[in-house]
Design a protein around this nucleic acid. Structure first.
Length: 1236
RNA sequence: GGUGAUAUGGCGCAAUGGUCAGCGCACUUGGCUUAUAUCCAAGGGGUUGGGGGUUCAAGUCCCUCUAUCACUACCA
């Protein structure tokens, strides 16, 4: 409890502000939090409460933060702050993702080295140490952003993925997987960049621009079927050779072909025809659905004898049809006989992925160069085409530089037994793609073309053509990648696929489609997780193997490793002094600094196998995604520490990241926790969309359209940015970040030369921002508008300005002024401006009246209608907003708060109640007014604080510090308000809505006849539309009357004959009843006369005819509104009708004049800088048309303007009079301050 | 290619299948304001991406096409 001295209290005033500066509030509140340790307190004060578990996804400190981080972090922060307000303990541990390729690449770049230099020019130790420092180089920026944007996360004790303790947990997890048999080593096909000499992760493959359209030579080749018992039936009726045809976009893989795959259930046909190149008669097998792609319809069954080589129309004939499974097992001759396989190959095999979309429905299989190929070949027992290099290692036909092996590089025995030197020599040493060949410049042919030509010559080609397809490229070298067989370690995620899918169904995804669709579909098509990375800076794979791979050990902790080392030392496999000083079971940072679980240290560890053989570490690192996915465990160094309370730390109640993490972090978290704990990792998840630039383009530093988050925060303040991000669109929609930095504007004024007719001036427009490209667009837009629409430049500018890019004021002298506006300024101005001003209004008068909320609450029943109303709305709002937050619908929550503040609190409650706060007695009504407004403000501060933490804390503190009503130091330590159902009065909310609607209708009518609001009018008439209508309106009629300056409201009952009514069918009720004839029913109802309507209303039923049917309708079936009152000015909205008496009597005119004067005098007071409490004397020059009004309403004028006297003077010599215009009359006026 | 999302005045967004498609910005014209904020009224500006279908009734449901974005993929 804070102690506030009585004296202090007496002098306390609500802070009043000259202007709203959100950026400044940002900094000052930030400092307060730092000083008071507010974040820590927000956890400390709830330390015994139920935890709300949140996982922070680790950003890589290697890069600078971008605006999209502000987006994701705002979402996280809103939820965590809300949960804190709701009483949960919300621990938030920050984290850093520190391993991985991006770090390595930036180090390579800064050191000016390549991968090959590591271990040569620079030791691995040095290199990794550089990575360790390099990766944290932007941490200060991240910390700065975190603080500035108000993201509460514990940056003092972050988890860091390179920390030895973190790695130890990761090892522990890997060992668990190893023990479960989920970790295996495989020789698989992976993306590989020959130019860079390294395999690529899928993450690298998905760098923007990696997939590109390329034009390649493709070949449909003829694979000659061997005639034997299996194939005999396909030869029986033909005299020609029989071929199976298959298409490939990579002819260079054809020499490695060992099989052909067919779809077992796909229909195939034998077609008798001619080779289009040689004209030799052939019979081919292809998929039935693809026949049309290779043969012309008009040539079907054409005369075979007429055909001559070179003819365009090649005759063809379908001999028979069969299924893929029928031809499985057929054997064929090797297409290109350079190198023989070591075991029997060249068979037709089934392939589950074969389609009839393109190609021939038969897929050429080269198991060394395709992942699917390798898989189906393995299943069918077909070998890959493997070579032995000169060291005896098994290799594919292409070496790691991307060229066919040179013969001298192969093992002599292998060459002797398997290589056809005669045919192979020509191609040995050729690069398979020119891009890899350092001497390829200017080369016209390529290996693909050479092979195609060779096939043609050998009569083995059916069709050769160019084909454009999408192919991945190495993001570093820009050259196409190869799919290449490499050794890797895998996690057998496919083994837990069903469980992953099952558990995913229990997760609450926002939006649901990401969970069911994008993520769910991904899980269904899951493949094993390739864990290996052949790099240096990362978590080493903790697996030691004997050289023959017969014995393997997976190490799960440092202690275990130390034990193994001991054994190894005892056997003399390694020297003794490794990592001395390290004490197992001591989990302090100091102790763990004595070791290093990275390369090269771990590589130096040689363990000993059971049979005494040496065991070496598998050289790979693991995928960094495993690091981050392991964070639920590793951040707490589980199970070495925190094992006992882990159920309070896992799984997460909530996580949030960008949707691009779906297959990244979202997956790795899910996969690891499923395999380790058989549990979900997170229960609720928001995956937010991307932050795009204002034109909807992806932001990139390269294009220069990336928004610097620091500049944005500096310009608008975090609150405005956060509010904008949250309320502008649903989190999962992409956000077009609409902002601009102001820049110099130059404007040239010329005479209009565009149209040659007008004399208007023209301008050249420069867009007021930092992007050069749009400047040109701006001018272009103007020009093209002028040209196409034959507009003069001035009009053209008008058109351009419609694009929301410029707001222009064309001045009389032809100058053009530009004001810039963007969406965030809009948020600032409207929401924060209004709230700030409402507070300022409150502060201003509360200070004058010394209101400090020291009185007891005025009884709710005693409060006026207006107060009850806003309190009702406020409590509805609290309820609704709570609901939204609970359902992670932050956007709706923000919008609701915004609407309440702007529309209801400021523009209705305060505006209507303004007079209650000015002058007069410190009455109960006044106290009620203050208390009510105060209650609204403080509750807004609370419920909006998750989204706008800085301003709302300022507001809260400003309110609390004077009243001492609450003991919390900060709004973020307070609790979310509980909606008081008893204050919610729906009827009241409805009638206030009525008052608003009716008032706006009256204003609309006034506008129609140009009668100002200051001119009082006698009355309005409102037809009664329902039973409690009169009662409802009567309760708010004084509001309508003051708001619209009307003297009375008259209700017209149904019986008054003057109403003209309109009748409309109620489709919702009648539709289901009458179905098909609904249209006719509706027309019949519309056709009812005034008499009919009266009858219906009287007897509450009426018969109409539609489509010959007699139909009885009741009052329930229709809507009746009073449309018109003859002779009156009438407006309709919904069911409500209002008629306005526009007769202006002399009395009314006089009163109007008086009100005009009040307005002029008030303006003068303001201009003269008088205080709102100053008394004045008024002097007015006599005017025949105005004097009577002034005399008559002297008292009214005086009371409204705090005037002691009004003097009407004939004329004056003094010149300090101001000319004022009132109802087309002009007179002069002077006010002076009373000195007393 | 696959999966998902999006498509509604110039721009940003709304609309349990129910009959004038709303709101904000911008633009034009008025008005209220003892609140440096905001608001109110009027106006111009929409074939709700195209085409089919279901239905008494479609922006909304279904099909199809197109475009954009993202993720994903060596499908030959």
């Amino acid at each position: 409890m804070r102690v506030i001295l009585i004296d202090d209290m007496m002098n306390k005033k609500f802070a009043e502000y000259k202007q709203l500066d959100l950026a400044k509030i940002n900094t000052s509140v930030e400092k307060l939090w730092e000083k008071e340790n507010t974040f820590a307190k927000s956890i400390e004060t709830r330390k015994d409460n139920k935890p709300f578990v949140f996982f922070e996804g680790p950003p890589s400190a290697n890069g600078t933060p971008g605006i999209h981080h502000v987006m994701a972090r705002t979402i996280k922060d809103v939820v965590c702050r809300y949960k804190t307000l709701s009483g949960f303990r919300v621990d938030r541990k920050a984290g850093w993702d520190t391993h991985g390729l991006p770090v390595e690449l930036s180090v390579e770049k800064s050191l000016g080295i390549t991968k090959e230099d590591i271990g040569k020019k620079i030791s691995v130790k040095e290199y990794n140490n550089t990575c360790r420092t390099e990766v944290m180089k932007y941490t200060d920026q991240w910390e700065k952003l975190t603080e500035q944007m108000g993201y509460w996360v514990d940056m003092n004790n972050p988890y860091i993925t390179y920390d030895n303790r973190y790695i130890e947990t990761v090892w522990h997890l890997l060992k668990k997987l190893f023990d479960k048999g989920l970790l295996y080593k495989g020789y698989t096909i992976q993306p590989y960049s020959p130019a860079a000499g390294t395999g690529l992760s899928t993450h690298e493959l998905n760098q923007p621009g990696c997939y590109r359209d390329v034009k390649d030579t493709t070949a449909v080749s003829l694979f000659k079927v061997i005639r034997n018992t299996k194939s005999e039936k396909y030869f029986a009726d033909i005299e020609t050779p029989l071929f199976i045809i298959a298409w490939t976009t990579t002819p260079w893989t054809l020499p490695s072909n060992t099989a052909l795959a067919v779809g077992p259930n796909i229909k195939y046909v034998r077609v008798k025809t001619f080779n289009p190149y040689s004209g030799n008669p052939i019979t081919i097998v292809l998929c039935k659905d693809r026949v049309s792609a290779y043969f012309k319809t008009e040539s079907q069954n054409a005369d075979f004898h007429e055909y001559k080589q070179g003819d365009k129309n090649i005759p063809w004939q379908i001999l028979d049809e069969f299924s893929g499974k029928d031809i499985v097992g057929l054997e064929y001759e090797q297409l290109i006989d350079w190198i023989k396989p070591k075991s029997p190959a060249f068979r037709v095999i089934p392939g589950d992925y074969v389609t009839t979309e393109d190609g021939t429905g038969i897929v050429h299989i080269a198991p060394t160069f395709g992942a699917d190929d390798a898989r189906v070949a393995k299943v069918a027992g077909i070998p890959a085409l493997i070579l032995d290099d000169k060291d005896g290692n098994m290799c594919p036909m292409v070496d790691k530089q991307g060229k066919f092996f040179e013969i001298k590089e192969l093992h002599p025995d292998f060459v002797k037994n398997f290589v056809n030197i005669e045919t192979y020599t020509e191609f040995a040493g050729k690069y398979v793609k020119n891009e890899y060949d350092p001497n390829a410049e200017g080369k016209e042919t390529s290996t693909d073309i050479d092979i195609a030509v060779m096939l043609k010559q050998q009569d083995k080609a059916f069709r050769i053509e160019k084909h454009i397809h999408n192919y991945p490229h190495c993001w570093r070298t820009d050259k196409p990648i190869l799919y290449y067989p490499l050794d890797s370690w895998f996690i057998k995620t496919t083994a837990v696929k069903e469980r992953l899918i099952e558990l995913n169904k229990t997760i609450n995804w926002k939006p649901a489609s990401t969970g069911e669709g994008r993520f769910g579909k991904w899980l269904e098509n899951l493949v094993d997780w390739n864990l290996s990375r052949s790099r240096f800076w990362g978590t080493p794979l903790p697996i030691w193997s004997t050289e023959d791979g017969n014995e393997r050990k997976c190490i799960g902790s440092v202690a275990e490793l130390m034990e193994e080392i001991k054994k190894s030392v005892a056997k003399g496999c390694m020297k003794a002094d490794f990592w001395k000083g390290f004490v197992p079971e001591n989990f302090s940072a100091e102790n763990y600094e004595k070791i290093d679980l990275h390369r090269p240290d771990v590589d130096e560890i040689v363990l000993v196998a059971s049979d005494g053989k040496k065991m070496f570490r598998e050289p790979d690192l693991i995928d960094v995604w495993f690091d981050s996915g392991a964070m639920p465990y590793a951040q707490w160094h589980w199970p070495f520490e925190n094992a006992e309370n882990f159920d309070k730390l896992f799984p997460a109640d909530f996580i949030a990241e960008g949707v691009d993490q779906t297959r990244g972090w979202f997956f790795t978290l899910h996969a690891i926790s499923t395999m380790i704990s058989d549990s979900v990792s997170y229960k609720n998840i928001i995956s937010n969309g991307l932050v795009l630039d204002k034109d909807g383009n992806k932001m990139s530093k390269r294009l220069g359209n990336a928004v610097d988050p620091f500049l944005a925060i500096e310009k608008y303040g975090s609150d405005a940015v956060r509010w904008y991000m949250i309320t502008n669109a649903q989190a999962w929609d992409n956000l077009k970040f609409d902002w601009t930095i102001e820049k110099d504007i130059s404007i040239n004024i010329d005479k209009c030369t565009g149209c040659g007719v007008c004399e208007k001036s023209a301008s050249t427009i420069f867009k007021i921002d930092n992007q050069k490209s749009t400047v040109i667009n701006g001018e272009k837009d103007v020009q093209s508008a002028m040209e196409t629409k034959k507009l003069c430049p001035v009009d053209a500018i008008n058109i351009v300005s419609y694009k929301n890019e410029w707001i222009k004021v064309l001045k009389e002298n032809g100058n053009v002024e530009f004001h810039y506006s963007d969406s965030i300024i809009e948020v600032q101005r409207k929401f924060f401006g209004t709230l700030y001003n409402t507070y300022n209004f409150f502060a201003l008068y509360a200070n004058i009246d010394q209101f400090r909320y020291s009185e007891n609450d005025i009884d709710f029943d005693k409060r006026p209608e207006l107060d009850k109303w806003i309190l009702s709305l406020l409590n509805s709002l609290i309820k609704d907003v709570k609901n939204c937050y609970e359902n992670y619908e932050n956007t709706k929550a923000g919008r609701l708060i915004q609407d309440f503040v702007i529309d209801h609190l400021s523009n209705w409650f305060v505006r209507l109640g303004r007079k209650r706060y000015w002058g007069g007695e410190y009455s109960e009504d006044k106290i009620s007014a203050y208390q009510t407004l105060y209650t609204c403000l403080i509750n807004i501060a609370k419920i909006a604080s998750p989204i706008a933490p800085f301003y709302m804390d300022r507001l809260y503190r400003d309110l609390i510090s004077v009243t001492g009503k609450e003991e919390f130091e900060s709004v973020h330590l307070s609790y979310f308000p509980v909606a008081e159902e008893k204050f919610i009065d729906i009827a009241l909310e409805e009638r206030m809505q009525l008052a608003q609607t009716i008032s706006s209708m009256i204003l609309s009518l006034r506008r129609k006849v140009s009668i100002k609001v200051r001119q009082p009018l006698q009355k309005i008439m409102i037809p009664i539309i329902s039973d409690n209508f009169v009662e409802q309106i009567q309760k708010v009629q004084h509001i309508i009357m003051t708001e619209t300056n009307i003297k009375e409201i008259e209700f017209l009952s149904d019986s008054s004959e003057i109403l003209v009514k309109k009748i409309k069918a109620n489709f919702k009720v009648l539709g289901p009843k009458y179905g098909k004839i609904m249209k006719q029913v509706s027309e019949a109802i519309m056709a009812m006369s005034q008499k009919d309507i009266a009858k219906l209303e009287k007897e509450s039923k009426f018969n109409i005819k539609a489509e010959g049917q007699e139909i009885t309708i009741t009052t329930e079936d229709v809507e009746i509104i009073s449309e018109d009152i003859p002779g009156w000015l009438v407006a309709n909205e919904g069911k409500i009708t209002v008629a306005l008496d526009i007769n202006v009597t002399p009395e009314l005119i006089a009163e109007g004049i008086a009100r005009e004067f009040v307005n002029r005098i008030q303006n003068l007071r303001k201009e003269s800088g008088f205080d709102v409490t100053d008394k004045i004397n008024i002097f007015i020059i006599s005017h025949p048309d105005l004097d009577t009004a002034i005399t008559e309403f002297r008292e009214y004028i005086c009371s409204q303007t705090l005037a002691n006297s009004i003097k009407i003077i004939n004329k004056t010599e003094q010149n300090n009079y101001v000319v004022v215009e009132v109802n087309n009359f002009e007179t002069q006026l002077r006010v002076e301050r009373c000195i007393n």
